[in-house]
Every structure is written in structure tokens, then in C-alpha cells.
Design a binder for these strands. Structure first.
Lengths: 340, 340
DNA sequence: ATGTCTACCGAAAACGTTTTCGTGTTGAAA
DNA sequence: TTTCAACACGAAAACGTTTTCGGTAGACAT
């Protein structure tokens, strides 16, 4: 019952023809007589012959596999990106290798070096926090210099020339803040990350720009920058208690939902007494109570676009080079129950 | 600046030695003189030589890659499983290819056939709903018969002999129901899936067993079986309104959180007037308000175990065969705010 | 008999490794 | 001087393909 995979060589031997003949027959080459072709094809079908992908990869110098490196798969946003990548990759006959950097620089480097040796045709990646902090991108540069295309998404850097797909974090944050201002709120706090996280920094800038644009003064006391390792609950609690806030703009779901929880803890009603806007339209925003108004970044679309760009570069054959593009995926403010 | 990967052949030519000599030198073979070794190694380092993985795969008939096929990556539980798989895979030098079946039988088949031709060393998979419904497992049987190991997890089937890792869905549901009974609740409803979803069926059985065990009668009106495509909100709403329920046991997070939302809509307070227990400890349960008491199935552990079993089989060399094991991962009832 | 054309097929190279086996050179022992 | 081991290295096969380039046989015309 246990039938190992059959190879061209075995078929050739069995049928007493050459390997070439078998190969050509299976490809319906006209070089081979009708008779022989039929015979070979019948035999191949009987034994369920399928060409060995590895051998093909070696010959073609193409693996039809792309790798996506992300910091965390647990984050809903990254999961949707993978989903988007997988979709268009599959449509184009590519497989997707998933690597998790775990926000670690070393893991990112190891993964890239390990795979840049023929295993895959190209990378799609979002930088780990540690990499963004160190600003060390040599591993990426090296890969690109070897001629392997890289597409970066979401957490990108200007220090690397390659295709990118991002959202306009600055604008999205600007719009979200403006949305709160338009509702008449004056004291609008910001819960953000430390500045080395590229998207956090951009969103902070957007927030500030919106305030200035409306002649509201920027109060540093209302800006809470949260370190990654920090236990941030008490910081947020203080922010809420020490200021009579009208609204909060949080740069991710977790910060937003935590703010809601802590507000409720102190009997501050959301949205009646405090409005909250988050960032990233994930599970939390949709199912929390109240559900959270948030900036939706379409991960599926981002992943799909990134995959499309990568595959186009892979198949455009030979280096149109230096025509790197940065695609901006539009965001959308979805209004839910946490704002009034 | 653009330096393509260097091969043994190129090094050999450059240094005017044979390919064999280069290969052996890099492996520090004693066959080669100290002098030559140094020379070759220096040159290789200079040109950043790394062996080509594809060539190695072809030679060794091992790719050091395993594939995990899941129905959906968006589901938090599956994301955690991937995370677990990735961890132990990486520790053992394996890469992880992720395929999404999208709950579709055809995609599952295509993916497996596509990859079973040398691209990977083994599969870890959870069945798609459609596959479970059709009960057609020929693609999996074929792969196994080719000698490629398969580990199934979570959504498994008795029709296939292979390693498996599951939770005791029946027992977990039993315990959850018993937990509600112990609190003195009599009218306990069940929100579950249709029976062809293996885990849904098992959980339903556990619920029934617990009721019977406590001499509570099983009321079919209190059992809501939800079709996949169905818009289930109104069904749940009816369930809640037409019965004076004490508690609800839901077989997944989504059902649980929806029940909470609908109860609140009709001013039924959770947990004061209605207690709710869910299944799967994901984002929703943790961050919903009230947070949801739920059966936690440790996805990381499940994925890790599955990967471990697969890798052990891959490396145990040659068919200890037919010693298939089924590992049961223990679950845990985490008590939160949705029960009193 | 010679030449040419076509139909059909096989040998071999190539992709990049690893490994077995052989071979030539050296120096020392007999 | 002969013999033999030790040493250093290379040739070649193998993994499974695809593809180019010949080559042979027969048919037909000259």
C-alpha cells in the first residue's frame, strides 16, 4: 500500500525508453510518436506521477515560494495581512512561508539569512520593534543586493530602497483627531507608543498637526508614550484621573480598550462623558462594549497589494530596477459606540 | 554592488581546485591540507558563500520545511497554533509553510497535492468544514501512503490513522456545564454548531452528558444549532427571549459575545440575570465587557506538541510505523465576569 | 547507389550539493 | 632500489528535472 513517489527515471526504466522520452511525452512534445506518448502518459497516470518540485526549483532557479516575515502572528492585523498575501500568492501559483520575528532583531536576521539561499524567491516583511530601534538593516540590504526582491509593509524605513506598501499613518491620525475636534472636544489626549516605532511616531505627528491646525494647544501632559515592556494600566489610569478629558485618541486597539475599561472602573461613561477613538479595526474594537470607533487599516488589501508587487517584480524578468514604488492604502474611520 | 550568490563551482574555478576540494575544505575535512582549507575558507567568507538550500534538499531528500494547513488564519485560536508550531519548528531548524483552506475542500486538496511532491517533509493540519461534511479524506490518505507523515489537530477524524493532538472537547464541555450546574442554574441553554463540525458535536455531547448526570432534563428547545452561513443573531435573540434562561454555554467566542450583546439589548444583565460560559480563550473573551468565562484551549501548546510529534516522526528514521498516538491537551476553565 | 528529408528517439549537460572511490605524489621503511 | 603507507586532491555519481543537440531509420527522389 505504501507507494513512494515515482520518478521519470523509474518510468523510463519500466517502459524501456529514455528519460528524455518520458519527459517529452508527458509534455505532449510533438517529437514523440503518438503511440509512445499514450503509453507513457497512461503509465504515469497509473502510478500517479507528479514532477518533483525541488528538482524543478533547482533547475529553474525559482521556488515559487515567497516568505513573509512579521513580528507577531497573534496580532489580528498581521493575521489579516497574511491572509491577503496568501490569496494573491495562491492565485499566482506561489506558496507562502511564514516567519515570526517575535519583535527580535536576531530572529529577523537569522530567518532572512537562512532563507536567502535559494529557498524562496522574495520577501514581504514588516520590521520588528528591535530592528526599528537599532536602525540596523544590513541583513535586508544584503538580501536586496543579492538580487532578491523585498517588499516592506506597515513598519517600514526610509533607510532602505525597495517597494513598500503602507497606510498614511500621519493623515489617518490627523483625520481621527480632526473627527474628535469637529465634535467640539477640546481636551483630547493621545495614548501612543515610544517614537522609535515608526507608525507610532507618525500617528503622534498627525495628532499634533490636527491640534495645531485648529489652534488648540498641544499639552505634553495629555500625550502618553508607552514603552513596550511597561505595565501601562496605571499610566492610563493616571492620565484619565488627572485630567478632565473630553476624548482620547489611542494608536492601537489595546490602548483604546484599556482606556475604556479604566474609565468605566471610575464611573466615567463612554461615550457620554468621554469619547474614544482607536486605531486598527480588529476583533477587540468590534466586540468590546461599547464597540470602538477606530481607524480601519485594511490588512487583506495591504497583504494582497504587497504580494502583487512582489510577484510582479519576480516575473517582470530582469531588473527594471530602481523603479521602486510606495503604495498607500487608504484608511477609513469607522464610527461605533465609543464616540458620540 | 549587486553580487549574486557564489557557488562551489565558482570558488573552485577561482582558486583552481576541484569542487570536491572546496566542499571538503568548508566542512573542515581532514582529507584536505591545512593550507588549502584556510585558503578556501577565507575566500568563501570573503564572498559570503552559503550553501544552496534547494540543492541540499534535492540531495538529502529533505527540505526541512513543514506545512500547516488551517481553515482560517483570522481565528485567534489558529493563529496561536501557528505560533506554537513555528516555535518548535524553528528550534529544530525547520521552516513553516502556511496554507489556508478557507474551509474549502478543494483548496485543501489542491494545497496538499501541490506540496506533497518534495516541497515539504510533512503536514500539520486541521480539517476544513467542507471536508468534515463530505467525509472525503482521500487526499490525506494518499499523502500518508506516500510515506509523508501527517499530524492532525483540533478538527480531526477517526477515519484517518495518524498522529493527532486534540483537547477532550467532550470532557471540557461537560466540565463547563457542570460548572454552571454547580452554581445552581437549572435552565442552561447551549449554543453550538451543526453536528458535522467534529468539535461542535463533541461539545454538544458533553453538555448533554452533564445535564443527564445531574438528572436535569435535556430540552431540545434550549439547544441552538447554528449553520455556518446563517445569520445567527436572530436565532440567539429568540433563544434568549423565549426562555427564561439561567445560563448559556456557547461553543465558541463569537456565540458567547453575541449572546451577551443581545442580552444587554433587552436589558438582561450579565452575569446578574444570566451567566454565560464560552469556549476558546481568545481576544474577545478577554476584552469584552463583561469579560467572558471560558474554556481555554492552549493553542500554543497544541501547535508545539503537533510540531514536536511531526518532527520526531521525521527524524526517527524509517518507519516505526503504526505507532500512531493521540495527544490530549488539557483545557482549563478560566472564570471571568460573565458568570456569577 | 546516393542524397535528402522527416519522424522519432537518446545522450548529455545543467542546476548546486555531498560523498565515495580512485590516483598520484611523497617520504620513510625494508 | 623497492615497497608501502600516508597524504592531498580530483573524477564522477547521485538527487530529479528540462532541453539542446545529435543520430538513426525509413521514405522518397535523383
Amino acid at each position: 500500500m505504501m507507494r513512494k513517489k515515482v520518478t521519470l527515471k523509474q518510468i523510463a526504466k519500466e517502459l524501456d525508453v529514455s528519460i528524455s522520452t518520458v519527459s517529452k511525452s508527458l509534455k505532449n512534445s510533438l517529437e514523440i510518436s503518438e503511440d509512445t506518448r499514450q503509453k507513457v502518459q497512461a503509465f504515469a497516470k497509473l502510478y500517479n506521477y507528479k514532477p518533483n518540485n525541488i528538482a524543478l526549483s533547482l533547475k529553474n532557479k525559482k521556488t515559487k515560494t515567497i516568505c513573509i516575515i512579521i513580528p507577531e502572528i497573534i496580532h489580528h492585523f498581521f493575521a489579516t495581512v497574511i491572509s491577503g498575501v496568501e490569496n494573491v500568492a495562491n492565485e499566482n501559483g506561489y506558496n507562502v512561508l511564514v516567519c515570526l520575528s517575535d519583535e527580535s532583531f536576531d530572529k529577523e536576521v537569522i530567518n532572512m539569512e537562512m532563507l536567502a539561499n535559494g529557498s524562496i524567491d522574495g520577501f514581504i516583511m514588516s520590521l520588528s520593534k528591535e530592528t526599528q530601534q537599532k536602525k540596523d538593516f544590513h541583513h535586508i540590504v544584503e538580501v536586496i543586493n543579492q538580487g532578491m526582491p523585498v517588499v516592506m509593509f506597515d513598519r517600514v524605513t526610509n533607510d532602505i530602497l525597495c517597494d513598500k506598501v503602507i497606510i498614511d499613518d500621519n493623515l489617518a491620525a490627523f483625520d481621527a483627531t480632526q473627527f474628535l475636534i469637529d465634535k467640539g472636544f477640546k481636551k483630547i489626549a493621545l495614548i501612543t507608543t515610544v517614537d522609535y516605532v515608526s507608525v507610532g511616531k507618525l500617528r503622534t505627528e498627525g495628532y499634533i498637526k490636527a491640534l495645531k491646525n485648529n489652534d488648540l494647544k498641544v499639552d505634553e501632559n495629555l500625550i502618553l508614550r508607552i514603552e513596550d515592556t511597561e505595565n501601562f494600566e496605571s499610566s492610563i489610569e493616571n492620565l484619565i484621573l488627572n485630567n478632565e478629558l473630553d476624548a482620547i485618541f489611542a494608536v492601537n486597539e489595546l490602548f483604546a480598550v484599556t482606556a475604556i475599561k479604566l474609565a468605566r472602573k471610575h464611573d466615567i461613561k463612554v461615550p457620554e462623558a468621554l469619547s474614544i477613538v482607536g486605531f486598527t479595526d480588529g476583533i477587540i474594537s468590534k466586540y468590546s462594549t461599547p464597540s470602538i470607533s477606530t481607524v480601519s487599516q485594511n490588512g487583506i488589501k495591504m497583504g494582497g497589494k504587497a504580494a502583487k508587487m512582489l510577484i510582479e517584480r519576480l516575473e517582470s524578468e530582469e531588473e527594471v530596477e530602481e523603479q521602486y514604488k510606495t503604495e498607500v492604502i487608504e484608511t477609513e474611520l469607522v464610527e461605533r459606540e465609543s464616540t458620540k
